[in-house]
Structures are given as C-alpha cells and as structure tokens.
Design a protein around this nucleic acid. Sequence first.
DNA 1: GGACAATGAAGAAGATTACCCTAAAGAATA
DNA 2: TATTCTTTAGGGTAATCTTCTTCATTGTCC
Lengths: 338, 338
Amino acid sequence: MKKITLKNIAQHFDVSISTVSKAVNDSHEISRDLKKRIQEYAKEHHYKPNKLALNLLNRSTKTIGVIVPNILNYFFVQVLYGIEKVANENGYNIISCISDESHEKESKTLAFLDSGTVDGLIISLAEETQVKEQIEGLREITESQIPLVLFDRVSELIDCDKVIVDDFEAGYKTTKFFLNIGCKNVAFVSPIGKSSVGKLRLAGYRKALEEAGIKFDEKLVVNFTAKDDLDLLMSFLLNYKPIDGILGLDEITAVKILHIVKSRGYNVPGDVSIVGFTNGQLSQYVTPSLTMVSQHGKFIGEKAAELLIKRIKEPTRPFETKVVKTSLLVRDSTKKLQ
Amino acid sequence: MKKITLKNIAQHFDVSISTVSKAVNDSHEISRDLKKRIQEYAKEHHYKPNKLALNLLNRSTKTIGVIVPNILNYFFVQVLYGIEKVANENGYNIISCISDESHEKESKTLAFLDSGTVDGLIISLAEETQVKEQIEGLREITESQIPLVLFDRVSELIDCDKVIVDDFEAGYKTTKFFLNIGCKNVAFVSPIGKSSVGKLRLAGYRKALEEAGIKFDEKLVVNFTAKDDLDLLMSFLLNYKPIDGILGLDEITAVKILHIVKSRGYNVPGDVSIVGFTNGQLSQYVTPSLTMVSQHGKFIGEKAAELLIKRIKEPTRPFETKVVKTSLLVRDSTKKLQ
DNA sequence: GGACAATGAAGAAGATTACCCTAAAGAATA
DNA sequence: TATTCTTTAGGGTAATCTTCTTCATTGTCC
C-alpha cells in the first residue's frame, strides 16, 4: 500500500482537493454525508497528512537539534536524557548529533541543521572549536535568528541562552574539601585542559590553594589527551612528591586514577584521597566507591530544553544564563573529616 | 537578518525565480555576468536553500529515526554510536527517540515519525510492546513501505530486516562455561524476563543444563523489575542452595549482584563466579573485574544502519536477518579453568 | 432578492527542472 | 550578396511536491 494523498482521495471521489482537505479536518463547510464517506475512505487507506508539506506550510518542524561532543561520556548521555524528557513533554523530537570533539564534523552538522530542519539548537562545543574559537558557524546560526542554547562548553563570543556548570566554584570547593580533610599535595588531572570547563576548574583550584597560603605548583597539574599514556604520567606525578589528593576531571579519569594508584600499592583513601567529576554508575560501584562532584546532567538537559522552548515561543526575550551548582557526593575514596 | 529566499533575490535583480535558482546552482544557462552578481548577492545574504522545500520536492529527508527503550543502558548507547557513525558517513542524520520501555510512548513516537519525517526507522522494541505483542504501529510502518530495521528486541510477527544477537547460543555457551569451571548450582538473574532476549537466553541456559544431565530448577531463575528489591531476592536465592555461579542479564545487574554477594561475605570468584551481559566500562573497573558476554553493541548499530541504507536504496530486495555472535570476555569474577 | 449550504479555485509555503520562447549569430543555398 | 535555415545563448513559464486557507461561485429555498 503506497502513500495516499489528498489528491488521490479527491480523484477517487471526483471532488476538489480542498474539499477533501476540509473533510478530513472535519470542517462544517462540507456536507455531512460526503464528509463521512471521505473520512471513512481516508481511514481505510491510512491517510496521514504529509509532515513535510505541513512543515513547509508552517515553517516549523517540531524538532530540535542537539550536538554533543561525545556520547560515550555519561554526563552527556544524562544531559541528552533530560533534553529528551522536556522536549517530549512539549511535543518536540530531537535530532541528536555527535561532534566527536571535531570542529569539522560539528560544522558540517551545523550546516545540515541550519536552513529549516530544526526549530532550535542545543549545543555543547567540541573542544577543538572552543580552543581555536572557530565560531563562524555558530555566528551564522544566531544571525539567522535560529534559537540556540549552549550548555557546559560555551563561548563568550556568542550571545545566546546558556546553561553552565559552576565550574570555578566546583574546582574551588573541591580543593578546599581536600585541604579540610588534611591533604597537602593535591594534584589536578585533566583530559580537558584546553576547554573552558577545564580552565575554570583549574582557576578555582588555584584560588583555594592561594587562600590557604599554599604555593601553586604547575607540576601537580597533569593535562593529557587520549593519545597519552596516563599510567606513565601518573607514575611521574607520584614519584615527584608525596601526593595525598588527586582530582580527576571526569568519571572515567577518576576511575583510571584509582586503578593506577591502587596498583602501585597506595591505599585509598589512607594514602591518597581521590575525587572525580560526573556522578555516573561507575563511581558508585568501584572499590572504594568514589567521592564525586555531581554536575546534575539530567537537570542541565532539562533546563537547556526549557530555555530553548521558551525562546522558540518568544524570540525577543533577553538572553539568559543559568548556572547550575554542582554538589559533592562524599563516598569512600576520601579521608573522613577529623 | 531574516531568512532570504530565491524569491527575494529574484525581486532584487528583477529576474525570475528560476533564473536565480539556476544561477546559485551554477547552471550554464545563465550568463556569466548575471550569475556572478547573483552568487555574490546570495553569499552576502547567507542564502541557503530551504531544506523543508527540498525535502518535499525530493520526498526524502536524509534522516533516519531511531527508537531505543533506554538510553541510560550502555548497550543501547553503543548501538546508537554505531548507527550514528554509519549514518553520518552516508550523509544521514538521526532522530533519536527513547521509548522508556513504554508502549504508549513508542506508539506516539512512531506516529510522529511516520508520514514523511524520516527516510527509514531503526527500532528496538519496548518490553511492553514485545510482551503484549502490540505491533499495530509497526505493521502500519511496514505497510506504508517505510524502510524498517529491528534490532535486539525484535518481533517475529513483523517482516523486515533485523539484526539480532545470538541470545540462545549466548545463554548456552555461558552456562557451559560455568559448568566447565566446576559450578554446580548456577542461578539466572534477569531484569528482562519477559522480553524475547531474556527468554532465549534462558532457553540456552536450560539446554546446557539438560545436556549436562542437570535438572532445571525454577527457583534458580530470578526475574525482577525496577520495583523489586534485588537485595532481598538475592538473599532468598543464596539461602536456598549453595549457589556457586550467577549469570546476570545486563551490566548493571551483574555489578549489583557482585556487590550484594561480596557484602554477604562470599568470595568472588572463590565461592561464587559471576558473569554478566554487555561489555561496558563498569564491568572492567569493579573489583574483581567481571567476566562478561559482549554483544558488540557498536557493531550491531553499524550493521543496522547499513541494512537500512541498503533498503532505502533498494526497497525490493529480500529481507535479511543478521545474527551477531556474542563473545565471552573472561576476567576475574570467574574461577579459572583447572 | 437575500440567506445559506456545499463546493471549487487560487494562492501560499520554497525550491527544482523540463520545456518553451526570443534574438542574434553562423551556416547553407540560390 | 541576399535570403532562409539552424543553432545556441540566455532567460522565462509552468508543473511539481502536499497541504491549508481565503474567497469566490453555484444552487436551492423562502
């Protein structure tokens, strides 16, 4: 059974297309008898108005585009989940795209989603984009007045609604926590050293150290990428000084650090306390369970979707930046407060 | 800057719309001079052909719809990743929807994606749908000739391309593995007792026991849902018989079992061996690391997308069912072979 | 002649394209 | 050389995709 259109039905009843259109939409303008016959025929043949035509007519698709850098990262999955929830409640669907941290792929996706495909966009920037500040694509989006919400990895150079994590404070609070439980040499291990998020957390870390009168030591900051051998870098770190606290900037990093530290014979949290970012399933089930900074991914997703939908409805409202506070979930990988 | 259309440009140059269309598409029919002027003007004003209009014209959207039951499950994220990869390589985008295991939500989504929004669909059924065999929605899809690929949780009642995991054999092989390492009382713990996947694995489990001359004991099969208290159920199980092997049907279940068993003082794998399904990050990093049945999620996603794209190109080819073999990753939660 | 019911025509959304028209240049013929 | 024919460059017309909506147009009845 092929797709059936108004035209087909019109031909079958030898009436005009507009009559059929009115009939299926139950307009009072059409006689009851004809209406009934048309509706029955339409139902029998599974008639459904063609969405593409309606989209064109209404200049709206009821879908929103989402671009995230990495879908295998639990944080982004949580955000996606939150977005989907709110979008769904409001009758929107989501087109989800993965930039794989590549600016090129991000740009291509942006070009695809531009020009009518979606009613709005929710994006967290690829690291490459953030580092090199290659934001022409985004600029075009905002200039075309396409509703846009940035979250987590945002850019100062773009004026739009944003949902960000309180990364500076998170770095600050967490470092103070380390100091409070008695740590003296706290290392900072980051797979996202170049992104705004990583930099802000580092700034918070420095501030906390300064306030405590501890000199910032660059050698305690370990930036690495997927290509680097974390094992080796950690080995240098542990040999450099008697490290007693390590902050890992995402979940998998924290878990890997835990493994490496344990395998070198250190006791966690006896010798070394460890804190990670992103509260996923991993951190709960490793031994010892990890103390984590929760960014409330699902909540961020919900807020981003809410902001976007508000803007779609009301395009001229002033831009808003929502800051979502992190919270520290203390578990067993950190020394207890005395 | 508002959106600009061919019409606007045509008015500006006082030529016809088709002339502009040809000019921006660099047709030889247009004089070099006029073409240049139009192209420059178009570029200046960020002209982009409206995708909605093109979609309507071409009756194709270059997007495929994906419906998965649960996005917080690592297996489905992996599949999604695989689908996205192949789709992207072929110029397709994906609309991803989450059914949350609810038939109602799945149906709504199906209705939305029907009627032109997508060029094809990749679906893993909600448990509810599978159990009650409520497949009218799917039937409409296939009757409308919309290309459809089912994966993992499929239905026998629907004729279409499928990618399935060799669940029966996986259940069988794994159970034999337990017996080989010397386990006598192997329990079977399933959060998806009602789905085809769960049933097939159970059938494989039974067959392996039968072949070994061991009587199947229903009490060793624990089906539970999100509402149940797994802790309690495990407690009954462990008190019932001296259990020395447990098979958990997904990753998080296996990890939870490990925790419960350890917390009750059993040694893993000394007293109890544990095997789980889905090779995600969790199972690698818990202690001891878990022996897992890998379903090759990303691979499944890639195959599903490939099948779908093939069918879009060639709608009349015969339906195909791809069976993806699982593999057992032996780690530290199972006794070593003598 | 006016009121009303039932239907149709036309235009709009935005783009592509097969086909048609015009003028001028070049070729062919007497 | 003059006339006719053919070609082609350059552009326009209109159909097409599908639906909805506004504004006629018909016919009937009082």
